[in-house]
Amino acid sequence: MSVSETTTDEFDDTLIAEPDRSAPARIRLSPGPTRRPTPEPAAPAITRQIVFDARGVWVDYGAKRALEDVTMTIERNLATALIGPSGCGKSTFLRCLNRMNDSIPGFSVGGELRYHGHDLYGPTANRVEVRRRIGMVFQKPNPFPKSIYDNVAWAPRNLGMKDGLDERVERALRGAALWDEVKDRLKQSALGLSGGQQQRLCIARAIAVEPDVVLLDEPASALDPIATASIEDLIHELKLRYTIVIVTHNMQQAMRVADRTAFFSLDENRTGALIEYADTKTLFSHPADSRTRDYITGQFG
């Protein structure tokens, strides 16, 4: 999947050629050649709001320490990628951010994990409320065996957002670049969609409740290259509105979609740890840690 400079040019051309698309500019209506917004220059002058603030976070599964001493901040309206070899704790860390690990037997977490200053695992934190604000898309597309419409409408209905439900569903489907493909068959089962469409439906489902953050756990790993490209496109548009945290195995993907990248690896005790966290460009061009360099140059993992 080469995303070359020319595609960026094409994007601008298309905008000039078709200036009056009826939808808001950030929504892509048609499939077709990959168009992506020009990457936002990481402007150091702007201090971004901190969404997640992790300090010394560790995770145990039973007696086994899975993740050790993670300290990092995740900032608003950026796409932050978590990369690293299998078993390095990157997914574990991601799932801590919306407390999806809670139901795993033996799971325990320590350190301090704050979301907009609130302690995520504090005594007053409500994990249902946490997940309402922090949506998640999983590795394998998992649409409910319901109609396309009901898949998107289910969570808003559940949370009592019943006014303007049709508009909300349409907005979410447009936001996930799926509207044009499904608008004529909203009542059909979501299981009839292709894998890539199902995954975009899951994204639509997540953004239908207008979360603050969208967590993506290897969202494209079960998809073919074309579907992957459309998901990556989408991430660029989503981060204008939401904060994105994405776990990926694929370093090229991290380079394409992420503003910041965190490299996780196993330390000498085979425990997951955060090795390096930097702007994506910096991390891939001038890694500070030799383990990062080995990993991104393919000498490890």
Binding site: N98, R132, F138, F144, W154, N158, L159
Partner: peptide, 23 residues
């Protein structure tokens, strides 16, 4: 995955059972 999907959307255990498991 289906149950996780429902819980990740801010559904309570009961909402997950009523909305996803039972249907």
């Amino acid at each position: 995955e289906l149950r996780d999907g429902a819980e990740a959307l801010g559904a309570t255990r009961w909402e997950m059972i009523r909305g996803v498991v039972l249907p």
